[in-house]
Design a protein around this nucleic acid. Sequence first.
DNA 1: GAACGATGTCGAACCGGTTCGACAAGGGCC
DNA 2: GGCCCTTGTCGAACCGGTTCGACATCGTTC
Lengths: 348, 348
Amino acid sequence: MNIGEIAQRAGVSRSTVSYALSGKRPVSEETREKIQRVIDDLGYRPNASARALANGRTSTIGLVFPPAGDHYTGMQLDFIGSVVEAAAAYDYDVLLSPSGVDSDRSFQRLLGERRVDGAILMEIRLQDDRVEHLLAEGFPSVCIGRTAQPENDWWVGLDHTALTAACVHHLADLGHRRIAFVNRPERLLRAGYESAHRGLDGFTKAAAERGLTVRTYTCGDDAPSGQACLERILHDDPATTALVTLNEAALGGLYRGLAHAGRHVPRDFSVTGVVAARWAETVTPQLTAADVPAAELGRLAVELLVERLDQPQTPPRHQLLTPPISLRASTGPVGTPAPMVADPDLNA
Amino acid sequence: MNIGEIAQRAGVSRSTVSYALSGKRPVSEETREKIQRVIDDLGYRPNASARALANGRTSTIGLVFPPAGDHYTGMQLDFIGSVVEAAAAYDYDVLLSPSGVDSDRSFQRLLGERRVDGAILMEIRLQDDRVEHLLAEGFPSVCIGRTAQPENDWWVGLDHTALTAACVHHLADLGHRRIAFVNRPERLLRAGYESAHRGLDGFTKAAAERGLTVRTYTCGDDAPSGQACLERILHDDPATTALVTLNEAALGGLYRGLAHAGRHVPRDFSVTGVVAARWAETVTPQLTAADVPAAELGRLAVELLVERLDQPQTPPRHQLLTPPISLRASTGPVGTPAPMVADPDLNA
DNA sequence: GAACGATGTCGAACCGGTTCGACAAGGGCC
DNA sequence: GGCCCTTGTCGAACCGGTTCGACATCGTTC
C-alpha cells in the first residue's frame, strides 16, 4: 500500500495526497476529507525511507555511546532514556551507535550513509577526534561534555571542575585534612576523558587551596574494584578521613571496603562525590553528592540539536550545568583521629 | 556525491557500480579495481535511505522498551547494550522506541512507516496487545519474555517461576519458615507484567509445597520504596526471617531498611532474589541470587531475530534460560528466633 | 469585460540506490 | 562453422515518496 493506491481510491493524483498530508499547498476541505477517509480505512502510513530519500531528512538522530566493553553506569542509562524521550517529543527517532574510536565502522555508517540528521555524542575526551571530525564536516551534532577547545562547538556539560572543588570545600569545611580522590578507570583517564580530567583538576586545585593532604586513585567501574581501591587508600594512608568519587559504579565497593575496615560512615569517614541522585540514594548511608542531572542533560542535548537542525546557521550554543551538592548522610565533621596514626595536621 | 558520480568518474554505468559493490553479478577484476579506486578517493558511501527504498530492507532493528516514566533498572541497561553490540555484529543498527501501550505513536512509526526490518520487545505482559498485534501481522519480532500463550511466537526469556521457586527452596533448606516476597511495582503487576506474575507464582507454589508462611508485597522501583516496603514487612510480621525480591532497584532500600531495623544480614535475616550479577555485587553483603543474564538474553534475542529475518519461513523458535543461584553472602541458616515472637514453626 | 491573483489540482521530474532483460564478446563443443 | 553457455556491461524501470511548473477555475478590481 503506497501513496499511489491512496490517490487512486480517493480519485485524485499522488501529489494531491502528498499535499493533503503535508499541508504545503492548499487542498480543498472536501478533497482532504475524502483522502483522509481512505487513509483511515486502509491504515496507510507513508514509507519512511522513501520520504527520507525525497526530502533529505531522516527524522532520526544518532546517539553515539561508548562500546559495551565498558561497564555502563547508571548515568548513561538515564541519559539514553531522557534522550529518547525528548527526541520523541520532537518527532525524532533515536539510533544507537556503539562507538568509541574515530572513523570506526558504525560511526561511518551513521554519518556516511546518512542514516541520521544529527548526532549526540557521549563520553567526550579532551582531545576527541570524533568531535574534530564532525566539526570539520559541519555535521550537526551536540556533545554531552566538552573538549579542551569548546568555544565554537555545540555541547551541554557538567562543570566537573567546580563540582569536585565543591566536594573538597565541603569536606574541608567539616575539618577533613587528608582526603582521597577516586577517579574513573585509568584507561579512561589515559584516553583523556573529560570528566576524569576536569574532575581531577578541580579536586587537586581546591585541595591545594585549602592546604589539604591528598592522594588520587583510579578505579575500575565496578564494585570489586571499588573495594580494592578503598583498601589501597587506607593502606597508603590510614589517616585518610574522607574521599571524593567520580566513580558511580564503584560506590558500592567503596562502602563495602569501609565497612570491612571497620570505618563507620559518616562518623569515622566521610564520602562524597559526583553521582546521579537515584544512585546516591541506593547506598546506606545515602550519599551526600553533587547530583548529576543526567535526564536534564539528555533533554538539553536534544533541544540544542533540534535547534541546530532547524536553523543550520545559528552560531554554536552550549550550556554548562553546576548542580549544587545535595546534603544527605555520608559526610560529617571529622571526629577522633584515625586509629593508627596521630597526625598533627588533623587538629590544625 | 552519489552512485552516478562514481559511475561517471570510473567510466562505467551506474548498474555496474552497484554490481561491483554488491557482488550480485560478476564484474571484471579490472573494472572493480577502477571503481574501488574512485570510491576510495571520494570516500563514497551509499545512501541508506535510497538503498532501503530500493531493496526493502533497512538494516535496522527496533528495540521497543518501556517509557522513561518508569525507572530504568540496571538489567534494562545491560539489555540495551548487549542488543546494540550483537546487532552491530550482524550489521544492523538499533532504533530505540519508547513504548508501552499498543498502537501508540512510536510503535506505529516503527512498523507502519517501515523504519525497521524487525523488532525486539522488552517488558512483556502476559496478555500483550503489542505482541498479539505483531503476531497477527506476521511482523518479524522477538520478545524478551513470553506471554501466556508463547508456543507459536519467537522469544527468549527467563524461567521466573523456576527462579523464584529455587530461591524459596534455598531459603527453606536453610530453615527459614516465614518469608516475604518483594515484587515489582503494583502498577506493573496489575498491567500483567510477565516476570512479576510468573515470579509470584513460582514463589507462592514453592512456599506452599514447603509449608512456609509467606506474605507478598509490591514495591516501587527505587530505594526509598524498598526501605518503606521492608518496614511494612517487619511491621506485618516481625518474625519474618527472609525475603525474595524481583525488584533490583529496590534492593538498596531493602538493605537500608534491614540495617535500620537492626537486623544483620545474613545472621538475622536472609535476602535473595532474581537480580543481575553486577548489581548483586554492589550491595554489602553481596546478594545471593539467581543472576539475570541480561547480556546473554540480549544477544540471544538478536540472534533469533536475525535468523528470522534471514529465513522468513522458519517455524517459531524460543529459548528459556534458568540460571543457577549464585551463592554469595546474603543468606544463611536461620539463627535464633526473631526477637519479638517465638514461633513454634521455626524449629519444625 | 479584460486583467489579475488566489485557490486547487495534476503530471512529470527527481531523490539515489537495485534489479531485470538485453546484448556483445569470447570459449567450448560437436 | 554454427550453436550454446558464460562473462561482463549497459539502459531502463522501479522503489515510494516530495516538489516544481503548468493550468483551469473563480472571484476581484478598475
